[in-house]
């Protein structure tokens, strides 16, 4: 059994920090030590910010986004095009698309993908919410921005089946060569998908 190197409060802090993605026990110890050393400049404001966020964070009842308001800032923004909904797996994907800033549309966060291996079925995802948003009207296009994995595409096909018969256009993201990517390093599957969806130059 390993000996405790600090008081139980600090040990608990290290244990909790070690559960944050990207941190292991060693890096959690470093982070805890850094926080303790920068008590006034970092530890106190971080604690206050975390407590504030804990009190105010809400899941948007419309799209599933994380925000401090419900409906979220994106859903209530009148400048956004409400006729297009971009469907994403997770909030991190929504943030990635917002960083890209390519479209000013609304979003819908599914909360994962269909995965028989992990026991995730349609009832575990926010698909019913998406279908009801489409049924309410005013939506002309669904962009399925799910991962180019078998699970992601299974979810995309499932959603397409659910909205079949409704008067909306369903599109998906293109699969192909990433910007800065070298053909030599791409897998054969991506290359053949890129060739199939080639465009006129």
């Amino acid at each position: 059994m390993s000996k405790s190197i600090a008081g139980p409060e600090i040990e608990r802090l290290i244990q909790l920090l070690a559960r944050v993605p990207g941190l292991g026990p060693r890096s959690a110890r470093r982070a805890a030590l850094h926080l303790i050393k920068k008590k006034d400049q970092l530890f106190a404001p971080l604690t206050a910010a975390m407590s504030d966020a804990l009190d105010k964070v809400r899941i948007c009842s419309t799209c599933g986004n994380v925000d401090t308001h419900d409906p979220c800032t994106i859903c209530t923004d009148p400048r956004r095009d409400g006729s297009t909904i971009i469907v994403v797996e997770d909030v991190s994907d929504l943030w990635a698309l917002e960083r890209a800033g390519a479209m000013s549309a609304r979003y819908h966060v599914l909360g994962g993908t269909l995965s028989p291996l992990d026991g995730v079925g349609p009832g575990d995802l926010n698909i019913a919410g998406l279908v009801s948003r489409v049924c309410e009207g005013g939506v002309s296009e669904l962009i399925l921005a799910v991962n180019a994995t078998v699970e992601g595409q299974t979810t995309a096909h499932y959603i397409t089946d659910q909205v079949a018969g409704m008067e909306i256009k369903v599109t998906r993201l293109a699969h192909g060569v990433p910007v800065g990517g070298e053909l030599d390093y791409l897998d054969e599957g991506t290359l053949s998908a890129a060739l199939k969806s080639r465009t006129s130059f």
Partner: peptide
Amino acid sequence: AARLLASAVAIH
């Protein structure tokens, strides 16, 4: 896999 992603029959 990349070939299968394009077809609903294949993916299911």
